[in-house]
Design a protein around this nucleic acid. Structure first.
Lengths: 205, 205
DNA sequence: AATAATTTTAATCAATTGATTAAAATTATT
DNA sequence: AATAATTTTAATCAATTGATTAAAATTATT
């Protein structure tokens, strides 16, 4: 498969992912990318035609990454309660490896909202997920309180995302270093799980 | 006070706030600001010396806005439960008038983390707030579960902020128009309040 | 081995950008 | 009213940026 020697095209793409995620489209120059890749700057245009096209390719890959894992978890054959916990675990792990991902998606979607359509029709995929069915059944059987899937997913995503997005702010305000923050985030994950599950499942004390 | 005729300096500042909040530092040109203000583009340099200095002045004002109201609410002479509700109301109102604020702060803090120090020592202000005292007492009297203020404030901020940050995504995924989103956000606010209060206050069913 | 196709390079382009300047216009002071 | 100080303008600057080009280097094909 992919051997020791990466192709120039791969190197550029890889470098572009790194630099675009860190600095965004506007903050990145094509020379930044070439430098990060260690290649002549004309190669970016040779392989990807333009900065915009290279960016689009990066953005679509990142948007997939942002949602693909989530959708997989939502369709696992596990209970609703386990699933909520699993989604939270998954997103935490994802953001640990790519802390800039959430911010990148939010920003570039804001800069050009139409980008979103090109990739997936998420509404369909989410509405027809196993998770959606489970939630509907659980509401009907009064196992959980009456609530729409839109709200549930937003609750989960909100609580996870801002932990990482706001890392700089959190560390500055409470004087944490990186390892202290990591511990804090781990504790916060437990709190989020407890809070959301307790809120949804009515019987929970 | 401020009469019909605004000074050129004010017009530039006002335009800068608008454009910087929308496009960020990297996405904004000094000519954008001059055009928005309807003034000759050299005036930006005349009054503010440089794009960077004008930006700093905008950033500091926005960081104040981001926190000042919060601190005021945290020190109001009301009960803990009312206060949590009031903080959520306050932030929702703030983001309704300035939806780009959260994203702006997060981004520009990421671009230059050192900016944060210049304004306030938030840790001190937060640690010594009335809210912090109330929280401590409530934990001691077992009125609420054992939890640190860091986590409580993060819970609150997370849940509010992403509602607005993720507006584009939410509307795209669930096919909402602006008024539908507004209703959705209002419902979500109620959910957030219930969830956080129920989680903290152990007796709450 | 010779030739053709592909990839890489250095040089260069036009457009944009933040900033400056000197003159013009306006306002304040004497 | 004359003069000085301040504000505004149009023209211009050098640096940066995304992109192109033609030649050089490398690799694939015959």
């Amino acid at each position: 498969m992919k051997c020791l020697a990466k192709s120039a095209e791969d190197k550029i793409k890889e470098a572009a992912i790194k630099v675009f995620l860190e600095k965004g489209f506007d903050g990145t120059t094509t020379r930044d990318i070439a430098k990060e890749a260690g290649l002549n700057s004309a190669l970016m245009n040779y392989y990807f035609r333009s900065k915009e096209k290279l960016f689009s390719s990066v953005f679509e890959e990142m948007l997939q990454l942002f949602f693909k894992g989530l959708l997989e978890v939502l369709n696992r054959p596990i209970s609703l309660k386990e699933k909520i916990s699993a989604v939270i675990d998954h997103d935490f792990d994802m953001f640990k490896t790519k802390p800039d991902l959430a911010n990148f998606i939010i920003n570039e979607l804001h800069r050009n909202p139409d980008r979103f359509f090109s990739v997936i029709s998420f509404d369909k995929v989410l509405v027809h997920s196993v998770f959606a069915q489970q939630l509907k059944l659980a509401v009907e059987s009064k196992e959980i309180r009456e609530i729409k899937i839109e709200h549930v997913l937003l609750l989960i995503k909100s609580n996870i995302q801002f932990v990482f997005q706001g890392k700089v702010m959190t560390c500055k305000i409470w004087n944490m270093n990186d390892s202290q923050f990591e511990e804090f985030a781990e504790n916060h994950k437990v709190i989020i799980k407890e809070m959301i599950i307790q809120y949804l499942f009515v019987s929970e004390k």
